[in-house]
């Protein structure tokens, strides 16, 4: 029923796309994190303008599908002469950077909310105690708030990492040859979608399994007090 010989042949070719997929994931998570922290801080700041900006950003990128965001950034922005004449064009010209930009903005909005939740979960007593011990400013953040917030936010962040790995499949719609892009090209030559997509699905499954294990290990490492004695 299934053409196993084809699956065996397709496997190494599709696996070769893993590098591109992982680069996209790593890039998006990194840029997304740098977007997320200011977003979280702005969302809880006293300035109405900052709060409004953060809320608008989070609302747009969490309220619309990633596919729309990718197309808006790639095909939508490329439509305007003004954009093509601007200094951003060398970046927006490349599908790779457009995909990275869309994924980063998307994960930045979700991660922003996760970071905010983490910060809010830091018990007031801990902060008061630190202040009483003479800590303030950056030291307070570095020693008390950040470690506790990170620990609290990690389970939710693990979910975000996994969904980012899955989301990179959409980059194939703007000509990027990651796992799904290579799979679709393979299908257009062999006309056997089920076999090829099963192979691609298995690769994603393994990637996500390892990512989840890695993050779980990190979680355990950061929560020594919860380990069984």
């Amino acid at each position: 029923m299934l053409d196993f010989a084809l699956m065996a042949e397709a496997f190494p070719a599709i696996l070769a796309g893993t590098g591109t997929t992982l680069k996209l994931v790593a890039g998006a998570l990194l840029c997304g994190f740098f977007l997320a922290v200011p977003t979280a801080l702005a969302a809880d700041s006293r300035s109405r303008i900052l709060r409004g900006t953060a809320a608008g950003y989070v609302l747009f990128f969490r309220g619309t599908p990633l596919l729309v965001q990718i197309f808006l950034i790639y095909y939508g922005l490329g439509q305007f002469e003004a954009v093509r004449a601007s200094i951003f064009w060398p970046i927006l010209r490349e599908p790779w950077w457009c995909a990275l930009l869309a994924l980063s903005l998307n994960t930045g909005a979700y991660t922003g909310e996760i970071v905010r939740g983490g910060l809010q979960s830091v018990p007031a007593g801990q902060i008061e105690a630190a202040r009483a011990a003479g800590m303030s400013g950056l030291l307070l953040y570095r020693r008390i708030i950040a470690p506790i917030a990170l620990r609290q936010a990690l389970p939710a962040y693990s979910n975000e990492v996994v969904s980012m790995i899955k989301a990179t499949a959409l980059a194939s719609t703007i000509t990027i040859m990651e796992i799904t892009g290579i799979a679709r090209t393979f299908i257009s030559q062999t006309f056997k979608p089920i076999e090829i997509f099963l192979v691609a699905g298995a690769i994603y499954l393994v990637l996500n399994f390892f990512a989840a294990q890695l993050l779980r290990a990190l979680e355990r490492h950061l929560s020594p007090h919860r380990r069984p004695i």
Binding site: Y75, G78, Q79, R84, R93, P95, T173, T175, M177, T185
Partner: peptide, 18 residues
């Protein structure tokens, strides 16, 4: 080689200089 879903999207990217 860059692979497009439709020729219409290809035309968009020729116009955009991509």
């Amino acid at each position: 080689t860059r692979l497009y879903d439709t020729n219409e999207n290809l035309l968009l990217d020729i116009n955009a200089g991509r």
